[in-house]
Every structure is written in C-alpha cells, then in structure tokens.
Amino acid sequence: MITESTNSKKFTGYHATAMIVAFFLVVVAVNMIMARFAVSTFSGTLVDNTYVASQSYNSWLEEARKQQAHGWTASRVTRLKGKVMLTVLQADDSTLQDAQITAIAEHPVGRTEPITLHFTQDRAGAYISRDVLPEGRWKLRITIMHRGNRMALAQEVL
C-alpha cells in the first residue's frame, strides 16, 4: 500500500524565482572576474596609432621583399642554460658567418620592461645571446645585419 507523505514541500514560484536569480548572479560574477583578469593582463593595443602605422605599410612590404631576396632562414629560437640560441642559413643552406644579431625581448602582456639581447657567434652559423633571458614566455623581435643587408623577424620563446 502506497502512502503519500504529508511533509513533502511543493515547488513554488518563489523557488523558481530564487533559482533563476541565483543562476544569473553566478553568470554575472564569473563575467566580472573574467573581465577583470582580461583587463589587468593585456593592454589591448597592438599599435598606438593605427593611422600612423598605416602610413608605413608600403615601406614594410618593400622591406619584406628585400628580406626575402636574401634567402636567409633562421631556426626557431631555443634556450641554452638561460641564454637564447638560433642558427641562420643563407639561400644555399650554408651558414651565415659574422652577422650582427640583436633582439628585443618583450613580455607578451607587458609585465616587465623590454630586454635587449646581443648575440655572438658560437659556431658556424649558430649565434647565442651574451645576456641571460629570464624564465617565462617572451616575444623576441630579432634583427640580423650582414654586409648591409637586414632581416627582421619575430619569434616566441618559452
């Protein structure tokens, strides 16, 4: 014989309203937290003035064409005992000797000041930074100069 419990509570409009309000409070709280993290970790600007940057666009394209004409290739940047290392090859896959290489290391979210790295030739075509790069993720803007020719590239190092 099935008996009905007399002390069961009914689901009322008050309960439904409380659940809906609680749901939206959680959604708003999570959005506020995520927005706070987003604003505090990224400045949001790629260039300070897009109009001024657009004026340089054609010269950037011309520079890229010149850079491709050299036929140089650079390896991925790697870490070696806290320093940064890369290898540069010419169009015929021979190593590029006696190049002057510098890099500006920037933290991706701008938490620290940029660090300038100067490279010395370690062995044929391999260059290693004289300076130690702190641990973490960095964006490197690398400039390679050799006999009046210039190559610029950007890489990330972890």
Rank of each mutant, 00 (worst) to 15 (best):
residue 85 M to G: 01
residue 95 T to M: 03
residue 87 T to W: 00
residue 109 V to T: 09
residue 73 T to Q: 12
residue 60 W to V: 13
residue 49 N to H: 08
residue 158 L to W: 15
residue 107 H to A: 11
residue 144 I to W: 03
residue 3 T to C: 06
residue 138 W to H: 05
residue 51 Y to R: 06
residue 29 A to K: 02
residue 47 V to W: 09
residue 119 F to A: 05
residue 154 A to K: 05
residue 80 L to V: 14
residue 158 L to S: 15
residue 38 A to F: 06
residue 105 A to I: 00
residue 138 W to N: 04
residue 40 S to H: 10
residue 55 Q to S: 06
residue 26 V to T: 14
residue 2 I to P: 09
residue 26 V to M: 14
residue 92 D to P: 01
residue 69 A to V: 01
residue 3 T to Y: 09
residue 104 I to P: 00
residue 65 R to N: 09
residue 127 Y to Q: 08
residue 67 Q to M: 11
residue 21 V to A: 11
residue 46 L to C: 12
residue 68 Q to E: 14
residue 152 A to Y: 09
residue 15 H to G: 00
residue 47 V to I: 13
residue 61 L to T: 10
residue 114 P to W: 01
residue 29 A to D: 02
residue 109 V to E: 05
residue 111 R to K: 14
residue 6 T to F: 04
residue 105 A to V: 01
residue 147 R to A: 15
residue 11 F to A: 00
residue 17 T to D: 08
residue 50 T to Y: 13
residue 115 I to W: 04
residue 87 T to P: 02
residue 56 S to L: 14
residue 71 G to S: 06
residue 156 E to L: 13
residue 71 G to F: 05
residue 54 S to F: 06
residue 22 A to N: 09
residue 154 A to S: 12
residue 34 M to I: 03
residue 151 M to C: 03
residue 81 K to F: 08
residue 121 Q to R: 03
residue 64 A to W: 07
residue 118 H to W: 01
residue 126 A to E: 11
residue 142 I to H: 01
residue 88 V to L: 01
residue 36 R to I: 02
residue 92 D to Y: 02
residue 20 I to K: 06
residue 30 V to W: 05
residue 56 S to Y: 12
residue 104 I to Q: 11
residue 128 I to S: 08
residue 80 L to F: 10
residue 10 K to Q: 07
residue 146 H to S: 15
residue 158 L to Y: 15
residue 139 K to L: 13
residue 55 Q to R: 07
residue 90 Q to E: 14
residue 56 S to D: 14
residue 47 V to C: 11
residue 3 T to Q: 11
residue 32 M to D: 10
residue 3 T to F: 07
residue 106 E to Y: 03
residue 123 R to D: 15
